[in-house]
Design a protein around this nucleic acid. Structure first.
Lengths: 165, 165
DNA sequence: TTATGTGCAAACTGTTTGCGCGAAG
DNA sequence: CTTCGCGCAAACAGTTTGCACATAA
């Protein structure tokens, strides 16, 4: 695969707000620094990640990628996400009863944070990073357990669903 | 080949360890009260649940059940667990990257509690139920989100694995 | 008798893996 | 030219579902 990327000028549902190219180039640099190769598939994954809002799962990414780069295979997306996670370019959070959600670590406004997912509607909300600090401390002191609060989303019912229910 | 291990074939009350009959009968009563039928498969699931220590997943249960009641199908185990959960006879916790864990709600020493699972070794530990109370309060006040702290296990690294790592 | 539960096979979601080819370096 | 990454198919774990038959009430 070569750098023949149909950077659509006719994009109807693609918004380039925060200019992903910047994030893209930084990600590619990190990839090179780690001794990894820069490939079309990897560009595609990073670019798509930069473009998608919310908390897309791997399958969401696959679907979106397929629209522009039909040659990029699902398995490659998974492998790429794994690689990118390993070098810190993307972060992921496991959602109870759903797909793992990914986003670029360097995304604008994406400093470290926690997640909570709604059991009813599946929506995911971001939470302040320090929210579980005291629990973490407790857990470590009392049980020797080192909590990784960013690794899994908390579960419950969101505002809207509480209202509706 | 007889009785290397005490077996229950058509004998309903073979019990080599103490007591699950009590929990079993209570569970069956709840089942009846809810207008559900008492069946062999349901007995098998409850009995096995009472017997297994730790935090077995549905597949663990299936395997154990198959040893004694080979006719009970995996799908039935899942459906039974769903039913029992609905009427409050069993509780379940979703484990990140693993199987949902079940246990009898009425089990000895099984008052409500939280769980944490080790990302490295997969072990599951019980935690005091109130551990996330202040976080719950925060979440509700600040974000309108109603946390269900028993629904998902916290994730991190257990004492042993921290030592080893 | 009759609704409810069951066994079975098959689908399903999310993810991983072995294989040989092709392309990045 | 030598790896590393790729596409592909297939396997995988955990769980759910449609169907026809069995059975508890």
């Amino acid at each position: 695969m070569h750098r023949v990327i149909p950077q659509a000028s006719d994009d109807r549902h693609v918004r380039y707000e925060a200019m992903p190219d910047d994030a893209l180039e930084r990600a590619l640099a990190t990839l090179r620094e780690g001794g990894h190769r820069v490939t079309g598939a990897r560009r595609a994954v990073i670019e798509t990640l930069a473009e998608l809002d919310g908390h897309p799962g791997a399958e969401d990414l696959c679907e979106r990628i397929r629209q522009r780069y039909p040659a990029v295979h699902r398995a490659t997306v998974y492998r790429t996400l794994e690689t990118l996670a390993a070098i810190g370019v993307v972060t992921h959070v496991h959602i109870s009863g759903g797909a793992t959600a990914y986003h670029l670590a360097s995304e604008a406004g994406a400093r470290p944070h926690l997640h909570a997912s709604c059991r009813t509607c599946g929506s995911i909300m971001d939470l302040p990073d320090g929210m579980l600090d005291s629990v973490s401390r407790d857990l470590l002191e009392a049980h020797g357990f080192e909590l990784d609060p960013r690794h899994v989303a908390l579960s419950g019912t969101c505002k809207d669903c509480r209202g509706a229910g």
